[in-house]
Amino acid sequence: MIEFKQALINEIEKLYKKKKAAAAVVLSLIFIVFGQIFISLVRNNFGVQGVSSSEFPLLILSIIINILLPLFVALVTIDSFCGEFSQNTMKITLTRPITRLKLYSAKIASICIFIFSILVLSMIFSIISGLIFNSNSFNLSDIFKITISYIVTLFPMVILCLVIVLLANIFKNGIAVFFLSILVFIAFKSMEIFFPAYSGIFFTSMFGWYNLWIMDNIPLLKIFREFMMMLSYAIILYTAGYYIFDNKDF
């Protein structure tokens, strides 16, 4: 456990020192601020209601998980695996007294912490933005729903991370993995449209999982079913990725 903790701290430090993590935070903040300003200008100049301040964080969440966050998850994951493969630094890391399983798990855990941090910061920024522009439309119930929505979104984003981790261990070239990740993402999104009857089994359809948690009548059975689907994805992808990682000759 001590080895895993040290490896996790080391991986988090690597992410912290890289510009990609800082860029993700800055872009999220800029996106939220300009989004709120745009909505306010439309409301004031054209008389269009748009979205209320309590709905704004959920609108931001929907856009972030479908555009910004997948992009940064791909970049960070590729850098964590392919970057070290190409620079031959993985071999140096493995000279430490740590098993490959613990190193592999620490890398994934650090990326999950990065994802959760972006979600929490985006949630805080969007709530503050809503309070500044229209505090009257907020209440404790809205804040609770927003908080739950951002927290549960971590689960489908972890599945996306594991998909990219698997690709990064199959193909060492970071550019190839990046474009292949985009193609896989687009392919699954397209299959949701062309095969709506089977959309529930595609991991990209689970990005909207948070909507089930904020309904007036929460569908507990559907939530449990989708959770089990994501758990199945996680077990399969994690195991497949580790099998390849463990058999690599660094």
Rank of each mutant, 00 (worst) to 15 (best):
M1A: 12
E3N: 13
Q6F: 08
Q6A: 09
Q6P: 01
A7Q: 09
I9Y: 12
E11R: 06
E13W: 02
K19D: 10
K20P: 00
A21R: 03
A21T: 15
A21Q: 05
A22H: 15
A24F: 08
V25C: 10
L27M: 11
L29P: 03
I30P: 00
I30D: 00
V33C: 05
I37L: 14
I39F: 12
L41A: 10
V42T: 10
N44E: 13
N45I: 10
F46D: 07
F46P: 01
G47P: 11
S53R: 00
L58D: 04
I60R: 07
I60D: 04
I63N: 12
I64D: 12
N66Q: 10
L68G: 06
L68H: 04
P70L: 06
L71T: 14
L71W: 05
V73P: 05
V73I: 15
L75Y: 04
L75A: 04
I78S: 00
D79S: 13
C82G: 05
G83S: 01
E84W: 09
Q87K: 14
N88Q: 15
N88M: 11
M90I: 14
K91C: 02
L101A: 15
L103W: 06
L103N: 14
A106Q: 13
A106H: 09
K107S: 09
K107G: 08
I108S: 07
A109N: 06
I111H: 00
C112F: 08
F114E: 10
F114T: 03
I115V: 09
S117L: 08
I118W: 02
I118G: 00
L119S: 06
V120R: 02
V120I: 13
V120H: 04
M123F: 04
I124P: 04
I124T: 11
S126N: 01
F133D: 00
N134F: 03
S135E: 10
S135P: 08
K145F: 11
K145C: 05
I146E: 00
I146N: 05
I148W: 01
I148L: 07
I148V: 15
S149P: 01
S149M: 03
Y150S: 12
V152P: 09
L154M: 09
L154F: 12
L162E: 12
V163M: 08
V163K: 03
L166A: 08
A168K: 01
A168S: 15
I170A: 10
K172I: 06
N173E: 10
I175P: 00
F178P: 01
F179N: 04
L183I: 14
V184W: 10
V184C: 13
I186E: 01
I186D: 02
I193F: 09
F195A: 14
I201V: 13
F203N: 08
F203P: 05
M206Q: 14
M206K: 15
F207L: 14
F207K: 04
F207C: 05
F207W: 07
W209Q: 06
N217S: 13
N217L: 12
K222Y: 13
F224I: 15
F224T: 14
F227V: 12
F227S: 15
M228F: 14
M229N: 12
L231I: 11
S232C: 13
L237A: 11
A240K: 03
Y242M: 05
F245I: 07
D246P: 01
K248D: 10
D249V: 07
F250T: 08
